[in-house]
Design a binder for these strands. Structure first.
Length: 470
DNA sequence: CCACATGATTTAAC
DNA sequence: GTTAAATCATGTGG
């Protein structure tokens, strides 16, 4: 500022002392009414003032203050001041013209948008980290979501806090500096002409400087978020095999719903919870609904692609679930005074002679028991010939309390349907206990049953997660 | 190191 | 939004 002042002074002195009149000065009434006379004396005075100004910096503070005071009281001061004002006006215009309303920096906007999108800037989402976690838990509804994101959230909150404190610091510093400069300018405006516009401009310059610093802060915050994000995503991308129990639960559901392995949203949630619970005893990963969806998606496609490969597994889970079901079946048959429900071979197969499927009484008792028991009853019954049928389609209700009371009539339809099917798969397999009877020839579950039962959360009590088509 | 298993992601259809 | 299908990328057992 001193430099600028000195420069203007120099220019002014050069112009006036050389005898050229300053354009703007013409309009001014000459001070003290000296009206053109005594021109040399005036020049002399101005020369003195300028000289004093030029040398003021070389002197000590006290001396300078004294000089300053002297200058302020100098009789020529008002005249010089108005001349300076004129010049300022002129140059100020050109300055103002050159400096335009700066358009919003696209990069800054991008950073701002990103910070807003990431939740770093913008409205506080719950305040502190504890509150944020609580809010996340409340908003997420599902526990697994907040657990999954809690680490990420904690780190994000940390970044957010740092960002905000830094931003505040910068803002404070900026304001302090601005007021300081403004005070300085106001002080100087007594000795040199400073228009409010100029102060404004100076403030603008300061703000721009500080906002460039802010941009750096924003940029580094963005970088931090990016790093956090990539690390989080990497962690998620990294495949971790499910625990044995979790796989077991999922397989159980899959094979006991083989006719329509499309768990509803509730069923998925249930499964996710179940898998997470069994795993939660250790350090195991929690399993989310989307992971369950992934699992079923993969399972369906891979099962369909190579049914033979999964035959063993299917039998295994058929046996596993059938064993529990057999108890219910046994009780049912016993209660209905049917033939003794001996369970030859693996314990879940029954021969025609031992169990008359045609007996309506037995059948109904069996079904009622199975469904009131709520167990996932998946088992094989012999057809009239040597063929074994899988009846896993009976179990639409295993995981859904709402469907435990699925009506018996539709179950009976299911049985009839299942029996009427021909088991054309797995010719080479010696024990096709589990046959993908509900897969059509084109390979696909979606041909027969309406998938709406998967997506519609509130099924009627009569509907069943099974193949009811003919 | 390899081959295979498997969870996740992408793509396209609905 | 869901799904099938293809694909990616990693885990795992040999």
């Amino acid at each position: 500022m001193m430099e600028e002042q000195a420069r203007i002074m120099q220019a002014l002195s050069g112009v006036t002392l050389a005898g050229h009149s300053v354009q703007g000065g013409m309009g001014l009434p000459p001070p003290h009414g000296h009206e053109g006379t005594d021109g040399d004396g005036r020049k002399q005075d101005i020369g003195d003032i300028l000289h004093q100004i030029m040398t003021i910096t070389d002197q000590s503070l006290d001396e300078a203050q004294a000089k300053k005071h002297g200058l302020n009281c100098h009789r020529m001061k008002p005249a010089l001041f108005s001349v300076l004002c004129e010049i300022k006006e002129k140059t100020g215009l050109s300055i103002r013209g050159a400096q335009e309303q700066d358009p919003p920096d696209p990069q800054l906007m991008r950073l701002d948008n990103m910070l807003l999108a990431e939740g770093v800037s913008g409205p506080e989402k719950g305040g502190g980290s504890a509150a944020a976690a609580a809010a996340a838990a409340a908003a997420g509804g599902g526990a697994e979501n907040s657990i999954e994101h809690s680490d990420y959230r904690a780190k994000l909150t940390q970044i957010r806090q740092i960002y905000h404190t830094e931003l505040e610091k910068y803002e404070q510093a900026c304001n302090e500096f601005t007021t300081h400069v403004m005070n300085l300018l106001r002080e100087q405006s007594r000795t040199r002409p400073i228009s409010p516009k100029e102060i404004e401009r100076m403030v603008g310059i300061i703000h721009r400087k500080f906002s460039s610093i802010q941009m750096q802060l924003k940029q580094s915050t963005c970088e931090a978020v990016m790093i956090l994000r990539s690390r989080f995503l990497d962690a998620r991308r990294k495949r971790r095999n499910f625990s044995k129990q979790a796989t077991e639960i999922l397989n159980e559901y899959f094979y006991s719903h083989l006719s329509n392995p499309y768990p509803s949203e509730e069923a998925k949630e249930e499964l996710a919870k179940k898998c997470s619970i069994t795993v939660s005893q250790g350090v195991g990963t929690t399993i989310t609904v989307s992971q369950v969806s992934n699992w079923f998606g993969n399972k369906r496609i891979r099962y369909k692609k190579n049914i033979g490969k999964f035959q063993e597994e299917a039998n295994l889970y058929a046996a596993k679930t059938a064993v529990t079901a057999t108890h219910a079946v046994a009780a049912a048959i016993h209660n209905s005074q049917a033939n003794s429900p001996t369970t030859p071979n693996s314990g879940f197969q029954m021969k025609d002679e031992e169990f008359q499927l045609d007996s309506a009484e037995s059948k109904n008792s069996l079904l009622t028991n199975m469904f009131t028991a709520g167990s996932s009853a998946s088992f094989s019954l012999p057809n009239s010939g040597d063929m074994f049928m899988s009846m896993q389609s009976l179990n639409g209700a295993s995981y859904q309390g709402a469907q435990v009371g699925a009506n018996v009539q539709s179950q009976g339809d299911t049985i009839r349907h299942a029996i009427s099917q021909t088991v054309g798969y797995n010719d080479g397999l010696r024990h096709p206990m589990y046959s993908p009877h509900s897969l059509n020839g084109n390979g696909g579950w979606h041909g027969a049953p309406t998938p709406s039962s998967v997506t519609s959360p509130n099924e009627g009590p009569g509907s069943v997660h099974s193949d009811t088509s003919n």
